[in-house]
Every structure is written in C-alpha cells, then in structure tokens.
Design a protein around this nucleic acid. Structure first.
Lengths: 114, 114
DNA sequence: TGCTTATATAAGTATATTGTTATATAATAA
DNA sequence: TTATTATATAACAATATACTTATATAAGCA
C-alpha cells in the first residue's frame, strides 16, 4: 500500500466528509457499483433532497462524479481523486455493501424510478 | 496490514472525531510522544479549555488515556483500542509531528507550565 | 494553612450540520 | 404542448459543534 502524505487540513476535511454514516455508506456502495439518486433514496430510506445534499458534498470535494443517462443521474467514485488510495484504505475497513447491491439486483435497477 | 472490518456506525464515529484538524493533529502527536495538556495548549495556540474539550472527546471514545504525574495530566494514545490499527493507517497519511516534537525539545518540556 | 499552577467542567454564544418542505429545472412520454 | 419523472436547490428549523469566559477541583509549594 502506498502511504502518500497529505496535509492535515486536507485529510481532516476528507475524514469529516466520511464521518457521516450515510456518506460513508454511499461511498462504499459507489465504490462497488455506480448508482442513480433514486436507487440511493430507496436503499438508504431517506428523502431525495437529503440524499442529493449528501451527494453534493461528496461532489464538491471531488470524491464522486455524476453522469446523466437519460432522465437519471448516475454517481460514481472519482478514481482520479488525489486521495483515492487513502479513501480505499478507509473503505476496506467497513463491511462491503454487497447486501445493498443484492437488494438492487433483487428489486431490479432504478427501483424507485418507474 | 490487517484489514479488520468494523460497523459503519463505529467507523463513521471515529472518522468524525478525526475529521477535525486539531484532534487529528493531537492524535498524530500523541502517537509519537505522550503530552500534558499545557504542552498541547502551547503547541496548538489554543485556549486550555478548548484543548481539554477536544481531549475529552478523544477520551470518551477510548482513543486516548490520561495519567496524572504530579500536577500534570499526561495523555497518550490507547494502543489497546479496538480500532488502533485502523487509526494508525489513517495517521500514516498525514505529516508526522516531528516538528512539533522538536519544538517541545527546543523550548523544554512542560513549556507553558512553569 | 493559604497561594499558585494545571486541568476540568459549566454556561453561554456563534456557527455548522442535517434534516424538512416547497419549488425549480431537465428529460421523457403522451 | 402538457404531464410526469428524476434531480437540484432554496428556505427554514432543529440539533450539534467548537469556541469563549467564568468557575471548580486537585496537586504542589511557601
């Protein structure tokens, strides 16, 4: 594992962002599979604005990117982010989001957008 | 590196604690060298209550321990903490606090407590 | 003992965070 | 075009956070 060193401020900023269980779970999930907003709304049982606002913070920090596909906007982890390897190290310590992905497979994709 | 997995809640809690630049720096410093409160007050140029309150949060989470030595209370990283290895991984990504330790050596220990 | 030093804690304040509801925007479908 | 769906954003409210100042506690010292 490469141990690149970053500033305390930058690191604290990333940790603060990931120090919210919703955002931490979203990052872990997106790291496995791109998702659209409505999938996250369904999976996390939160309101659409609440999810959008969490995504906004992650996007503002450059941790995720968005891609519109027809009426949906898909979010993905930005693997080009300077701190991507660091974030990977952190995500390696929490349960993989396989269950949530299975939930998506079972219910069908874009579950709440039909 | 062992990649033990913890709950999202527990992990998010630790990240939130470390997601403050003062606490993150304190942890990095204590990881190298035990310090008393007045040393931290001097090094971080913050008020004594502000430092004490940060230490309280770290202590409540079990991340640090305190030991009284005469009139001073020394704080140290709790190496027995369940998430100690995880915290080490995080601290490995920020600059070591060698400079601050040098500052202590230069000025003498317990610099503001004389 | 009374004074000083080191630290903790309580109370108050300003700001940040995270949700809510209401509304705006953009794409698709009828 | 109008209606519907997916998403973003604005405005607001409740709560949390991180300081401040004032005070309490505990140890050492004269």
């Amino acid at each position: 594992m490469k141990q690149t060193v970053f500033s305390v401020d930058e690191t604290a900023g990333i940790l603060k962002l990931l120090g919210d269980k919703t955002r931490l779970s979203i990052m872990a999930l997106l790291d496995k599979r791109d998702c659209c907003v409505c999938e996250l709304v369904e999976l996390f049982q939160m309101s659409q604005p609440a999810i959008s606002q969490h995504l906004r913070k992650l996007k503002d920090a450059g941790l995720v990117r968005e891609t519109r596909k027809a009426q949906w906007i898909f979010y993905s982890v930005n693997k080009k982010h300077e701190l991507y390897a660091f974030i990977q190290d952190i995500l390696a310590h929490i349960p993989s989001q396989e269950e949530k992905i299975k939930e998506l497979e079972t219910k069908g994709t874009r579950i709440s957008c039909e």
